[in-house]
Simulated scan of single mutants.
Amino acid sequence: MNWDAIGAIGETIGAAAVVISLLYLAVQIRGQNKQSRLSALHDMSRELREVTEIFATEDMTSIFVRANESYASITEPESVRLIIVITNFFRAWENAFLENRDGYLDTRVWAALSREYIRPMGAPSFQHIWKLRKQNYAADFCDYVDSLEKEEYITR
């Protein structure tokens, strides 16, 4: 066997090793992308639960109901509390929107998750606070929220 043949065999083995390494890397990246999407879903679900659980407290529920009847009927400290809670809701919604926009949330998941965020926009208090604070959010998210058809927020 001459050196040229040995060199050709070595190059062939090296090329095969590179192809195998690239295939392995592709499989690893695909698995990592799937894990990233799953992690984003869990994060979005957790954020939604945390922000909506606050509305389940008796005190916040009372503020929310009274603010929807007449925003002027709640006190200044109650207004501050409601603004904080609702802006946290908007921030969680914006995060989900951005995760979907950037491809980290499956579109079916986004469709279901977004309905949970859209419904409260029918409440007068949400609409009022959105007008007060929407300048604090990404422009494309604001455009999205403003384009939504508002439905009546039904509690019974």
Rank of each mutant, 00 (worst) to 15 (best):
F90M: 13
A8K: 15
K134D: 09
R115H: 11
E11K: 13
I84F: 05
K34G: 01
T12S: 15
F126Y: 11
V109A: 15
A138C: 00
S125V: 05
D43F: 12
D43H: 10
S70G: 11
L98M: 14
I129S: 04
D43Y: 09
W3R: 11
A139T: 15
R156D: 14
E76A: 14
K134Y: 09
D140R: 06
Y117A: 05
H128C: 08
I86K: 11
S21F: 11
M60I: 01
S45Q: 09
G122Q: 05
V109G: 04
F64Q: 06
W130D: 03
E99Q: 12
W110N: 08
A96Q: 04
K150T: 14
L113Y: 01
P120F: 05
E99K: 11
P77Y: 01
E50D: 08
R115V: 13
S36F: 04
S147N: 02
A8Y: 06
Q28G: 09
K131N: 06
V65A: 01
D143F: 00
S45T: 15
R30I: 00
D140V: 10
T12K: 12
R115G: 12
R91F: 13
P77E: 05
Y137R: 06
I20H: 04
E53H: 06
W130K: 05
A8C: 09
L105V: 10
F141R: 00
V145D: 08
D59K: 08
D143N: 06
P120S: 05
I74V: 01
N2A: 08
A8I: 14
D4E: 12
N68H: 01
Y137W: 12
I54K: 02
D59C: 05
R156E: 12
L38K: 01
A139M: 14
A92C: 14
G122T: 03
E69L: 12
F64N: 05
K131G: 07
W3S: 14
F141H: 02
M1W: 10
D59A: 08
K131A: 06
E76D: 12
A15P: 00
T87D: 08
A40Q: 00
N33G: 00
T87M: 03
F55G: 13
R101S: 10
E78N: 10
E69G: 10
L82A: 11
A15R: 04
D43S: 12
R46S: 14
G103M: 11
R30G: 03
E58Y: 02
A139H: 09
W110E: 04
S79G: 15
T107Q: 14
A96V: 08
F64P: 04
S21Y: 07
G103Q: 11
A56K: 07
D102F: 14
E78D: 13
A26W: 03
G103P: 07
T52N: 06
M1P: 14
Y153I: 02
Y137M: 05
L41V: 15
N33E: 10
N88V: 02
I54Y: 00
R108W: 08
